[in-house]
Design a protein around this nucleic acid. Structure first.
Lengths: 173, 173
DNA sequence: GATAATTGTTATGGACCATACCAAATATCG
DNA sequence: CGATATTTGGTATGGTCCATAACAATTATC
């Protein structure tokens, strides 16, 4: 049981040992200067992404869904009857790596592979009833506990603006 | 040398086989619906981060610097005389994983470990002359080829706004 | 009907991340 | 002072994610 304990301690937040501590009077070494790093797109982007994923996992702890798994369920629900290759490639997942992922979801009875009658090579993907139910609960958790945090932090207008800019980067950079 | 070839082919861009292709008239299956996925913060954030890192690596191909290595050089330059633990923890890198990274940079004569005279346990980190020169060139490449792209894509005002919002998320989410 | 292409899969290796543990050096405290 | 605890850099190790090669079954192509 070392893993679960590890997840809570998390990896010591960067610049935390240096920045955000109350001065207790000890002769602590001065904090490091981030310098130009705090203006680097990649740096701040990666940092933000880690924080968001971390928060996502906490919010979904009761359902045991990772961001990747959630995205698969969302996509399968929106596009029922597609095969593994289509779902995987749309998410940027390579087919070999998608196999274990589906094995997991299927073993938990969240989705199912069905041999296509048209093309007996391919597996059609469908959400099970349990999968639909879990996804519905997941959506609510994400909306109320996760995405809501963004509104609290940035406000609705900025939130929309942020998503839009990130989409633009993801598609046109 | 399979790695470098791999980096160029990249992993097939998501939603590319479905979205951005000219209609050639073939009876292609219709594109998948992204649905709520395109509004998910984590999804679009991760996607954007991958694109940005990918572009960063291309821009730095001549210098062979990864984003992580670049951040180390930047931080050491800004904070000379700090030891491994301080630099690593500020960047969110665990000490054990920082060792190989420094071995690499040191073997390329970009930075050096110096035994501290005060505390003979710790290694003070310094950029070598070559390290300073390489970093200077790296900064120019990043500014002109990488970060400039963001201005072209979003405009200066939005760029600033984006960085600010991402910083806020990284620090307060 | 022979050959090529596609689908799901296995095996495998690399990159990155996290933990446990160790020796040397230092700090702490009786 | 000396025993004990802490810190630092390091090794070993395992997990997860990502990418490639190769394969059998099936389908498409010519």
């Amino acid at each position: 049981m070392t893993v679960s304990k590890t997840a809570e301690k998390s990896s010591e937040k960067p610049a935390d040992a240096a920045k955000g501590r109350k001065d207790t009077g000890e002769p602590q070494a001065e904090a490091l200067q981030l310098g130009e790093l705090s203006e680097q797109l990649g740096y701040v982007l990666k940092r933000a992404q880690l924080k968001v994923f971390e928060n996502f996992l906490r919010c979904m702890a009761s359902l045991q869904l990772t961001p990747a798994q959630f995205s698969v369920l969302l996509l399968v629900e929106k596009n029922p009857g597609r095969n593994q290759t289509e779902i995987a490639s749309t998410l940027g997942i390579l087919r070999p790596n998608f196999v274990a992922m589906l094995d997991n979801l299927e073993s938990r009875d969240l989705c199912a592979r069905i041999r296509s009658t048209n093309d007996r090579r391919s597996h059609i993907l469908v959400l099970t009833d349990k999968g639909k139910a879990v996804l519905a609960r997941a959506k609510k958790l994400v909306a109320t506990k996760h995405e809501a945090r963004l509104n609290d932090l940035l406000g609705p207008a900025n939130r929309e603006s942020l998503i839009e800019m990130l989409s633009k980067i993801a598609n046109e950079f």
